[in-house]
């Protein structure tokens, strides 16, 4: 079975041989554990693009921390978290105060935030720094960054478990939840914190631009294969981790940039799911003719 053995070594050797590959895989898998479940809720709340906006919004915080403390993972995490939450809260408050839709206020604040972030980085840092922040450094994760990823992901999972029921009911029927008190608002706020925290953790490994891909795409893929919320959450996490592994291999063998490789692997998975997914997949949908036949049968 030499071919099978070859395939096996093709898939696993880089991780056995190289420590930086193991670290990258560990970091990305841990990231998937925290980000993918949050992504499922983002998608189900029709906030997929909000995730993208938030990913941009964290930039000035991270940039300011970078200017003050250099490439310190902890400082950049705290800065990013502060900036992301500030934008989310400002956008929400402005929408409520001015009776504007939240997507317009969020767009305004995140664009301002993004511009400020790019300005701050380009003012002092070199282009290499900008690239690091935008596209991450999955292959150069140090111990501090890995610990941060682990802590964020585990904390995120715990917090998600705590507010799970309220979050589900808030997504499903917020009016109903509000009849029992202010739990819905709390759940929404905790959820925003989780989104921002996971994005901030994500940008160490994948960069601000790509971090949101690992959050949203696995959820979008899982939706074509699984019906129930529980299965969606588990499947999205596994899909995210698998894509990290595949993306890292692609990047290793073909010398491609890591984070885009991971997100592109997910994007290909998404296209395949759109075509082949048993739920609403284009090629798996019963044709119009067979539908009308079955309707006729029912009538008869």
């Amino acid at each position: 079975m030499p071919e099978l053995f070859n395939l096996f070594s093709l898939l696993f050797d880089p991780f056995v041989e190289f420590q930086f590959m193991r670290r990258a895989l560990f970091g990305c898998a841990v990231l998937s554990l925290g980000a993918a479940p949050v992504g499922v809720f983002l998608m189900l709340r029709r906030m997929s693009l909000t995730g993208d906006a938030m990913a941009h919004a964290i930039l000035p915080g991270a940039a300011l921390a970078y200017l003050l403390y250099g490439l310190s993972a902890v400082a950049m995490t705290l800065g990013g978290l502060a900036a992301g939450l500030l934008v989310a809260l400002l956008a929400g408050a402005t929408a409520r105060q001015t009776n504007n839709s939240e997507d317009s206020t969020l767009a305004a604040f995140y664009l301002g935030s993004l511009a400020l972030g790019v300005l701050l980085i380009s003012a002092k840092g070199s282009n290499v720094d900008l690239l690091h922040v935008l596209f991450g450094t999955a292959l150069a994760l140090d111990n501090t960054a890995l610990t941060l990823l682990l802590v964020t992901s585990l904390a995120s999972l715990c917090l998600l478990t705590v507010v799970y029921r309220a979050l589900v009911l808030e997504c499903l029927d917020s009016e109903y939840l509000s009849s029992f008190g202010g739990m819905g608002k709390l759940a929404h706020f905790v959820f925003l914190v989780l989104v921002v925290a996971n994005l901030v953790a994500g940008f160490h490994a994948l960069g601000t631009l790509m971090a949101v891909g690992l959050m949203i795409l696995p959820a979008c893929i899982a939706r074509f294969w699984f019906k129930h919320l529980g299965s969606l959450l588990v499947a999205a996490t596994i899909i995210a981790a698998s894509a990290c592994w595949l993306g890292l291999l692609l990047s290793f063998y073909f010398g491609l940039a890591t984070s885009p490789s991971i997100v592109l692997a997910l994007a290909v998975g998404y296209v395949l799911s759109v075509l082949l997914g048993p739920l609403r997949g284009i090629l798996r949908r019963p044709s119009a003719a067979s539908l009308s036949n079955s309707n006729n049968r029912e009538v008869i």
Partner: peptide
């Protein structure tokens, strides 16, 4: 309270049993 037009997101992936169970909120809480 049963509203005239409920705001339920019917595309949310839960089944009837799970949905009806949310009526136990007062008993179960978080």
């Amino acid at each position: 309270y049963l509203p005239q037009a409920s705001m339920v997101d019917r595309s949310f992936p839960v089944n009837v049993r799970q949905f009806v169970s949310t009526g136990l909120w007062n008993q179960l809480g978080l």
